[in-house]
Amino acid sequence: MLWSDLEVFLAAVRTGSYTAAGRQLDVNRTTVGRRVDALERALGTPLFEQTPLGYAPTPAGARLLAAAEAMEREVAAMLADIGGIGLRSAPIRIAGSGGIACEFLPELAAFRQAHPDVPIELLGELDPLDAVTQRRADLGIVLVRALPLRLTGVQVATLRQSPYGIADSLPSLPQLGWGYEFNAALPGGPWNSNPAGEVAQAAGLATFNSWPQLKQAVLSGIGKASLWCFAADAEPALLRLAPPDPRHDCPLWLVHRAKAPPGPGLSQLIAFLEKRIAARCNQES
């Protein structure tokens, strides 16, 4: 059994597909499949099985995964001790509910300073649950009351909303709303404090399809809207128009696929963001 075959197996489990593992390792899908097949022949047992949530390690595959992760940690420690060059890390792809991940760019910048060897990629996905499930993203920064079974993660904060506007134009500020794209990707959530979709269109409102867009529209004086307090309170030009409504509170989660244990880089990122995001969001008044 070769360590290089175990590296391929680790990538296949963590990414959730041979194609994604091939992109990470800079080889084609066929090569990944051939290396996993070689492991299965050497061990005399299947390592993956079909489940309702897609392919996942068999019990034998889970045991091999644990052993391979222990070996990976040992190899990384050895390379650090002797100054060797390890395997180049693939970018960690991040998606956030309605673009809310953009609010955490300072935390991501701090992570990159602490871990320059772990690249990250911020995606333009509106629905991170779907993006993580379909393997387009490795990490979701998710606003949801409860996680679906196919995903796992850690709750880092509970976010609150209030209506905001800029003080100079308060008497004449019109209501802003969510566009069809946002409403279709994230239906029925706690963010319905703003009119959405057909309701917003029927009222003739200006509409937007991400949290950064909506916040910038309020900052620009286009109108007023409910925003997440932790982000809006940091903007000196914005004024709270009413106290937060508890009906629109929502947990914020860091999530990944339940059947794809995070690798070292993703584990470091989750631990880092869990601490930094919780500290920042708990500062809101």
Results as ranks from 00 to 15, higher is better:
Met1Ile: 09
Leu6Ser: 08
Glu7Cys: 14
Glu7Leu: 15
Val8Ser: 11
Arg14His: 13
Thr15Glu: 10
Gly16Met: 05
Tyr18Trp: 13
Ala21Leu: 08
Gly22Ile: 07
Gln24Asn: 06
Gln24Leu: 13
Leu25Trp: 03
Leu25Glu: 03
Asp26Trp: 09
Asp26Gln: 15
Val27Leu: 07
Asn28Ile: 09
Gly33Tyr: 04
Gly33Trp: 03
Leu39Ser: 01
Ala42Arg: 13
Leu43Ser: 06
Pro46Ala: 02
Glu49Asp: 03
Gln50Leu: 13
Gln50Cys: 01
Gln50Thr: 11
Leu53Thr: 14
Tyr55Ser: 13
Pro57Phe: 02
Gly61Arg: 01
Ala62Val: 00
Ala62Trp: 10
Arg63Met: 00
Arg63Val: 00
Arg63Glu: 07
Leu65Arg: 02
Ala66Asp: 06
Ala68Glu: 01
Glu69Phe: 00
Ala70Met: 07
Val75Tyr: 03
Ala80Pro: 02
Asp81Met: 15
Asp81Trp: 15
Ile82Arg: 15
Leu87Ile: 14
Arg88Gln: 14
Ser89Pro: 07
Pro91Cys: 14
Arg93Gln: 15
Gly98Asp: 02
Gly99Trp: 00
Cys102Ser: 11
Leu108Trp: 04
Phe111Val: 06
Arg112Lys: 15
Gln113Pro: 04
Pro119Glu: 10
Leu122Thr: 09
Gly124Val: 11
Asp127Gln: 07
Leu129His: 02
Leu129Ala: 08
Asp138Val: 05
Val142Gly: 04
Leu143Gln: 12
Leu143Thr: 13
Val144Thr: 14
Gly153Trp: 10
Val156Asn: 07
Gln161Val: 06
Pro163Met: 00
Gly165Ser: 01
Asp168Glu: 11
Ser169Ala: 09
Pro174Lys: 02
Gly177Arg: 03
Tyr180Arg: 10
Asn183Ile: 00
Pro187Cys: 04
Pro187Gln: 04
Gly189Ala: 08
Pro190Val: 08
Asn194Lys: 09
Asn194Arg: 09
Gly197Phe: 04
Ala203Val: 01
Ala203Glu: 15
Gly204Tyr: 04
Gly204Thr: 07
Phe208Val: 09
Phe208Ser: 07
Ser210Gln: 09
Ser210Arg: 07
Gln213Phe: 03
Val218Gly: 01
Leu227Asp: 10
Cys229His: 06
Ala231His: 11
Ala232Leu: 05
Ala234Gly: 11
Ala237Tyr: 00
Leu238Met: 13
Leu238Gln: 10
Arg240Glu: 12
Leu241Lys: 03
Ala242Gln: 13
Pro243Leu: 05
Pro251Tyr: 00
Leu252Ile: 02
Trp253Glu: 01
Ala258Asp: 08
Lys259Cys: 12
Pro262Ser: 10
Gly265Met: 12
Gly265Thr: 11
Gln268Lys: 13
Leu269Asn: 06
Ala271Glu: 13
Ala271Lys: 08
Glu274Gln: 15
Ala278Asp: 10
Ala278Trp: 04
Ala279Asn: 10
Gln283Asp: 05
Ser285Asn: 12
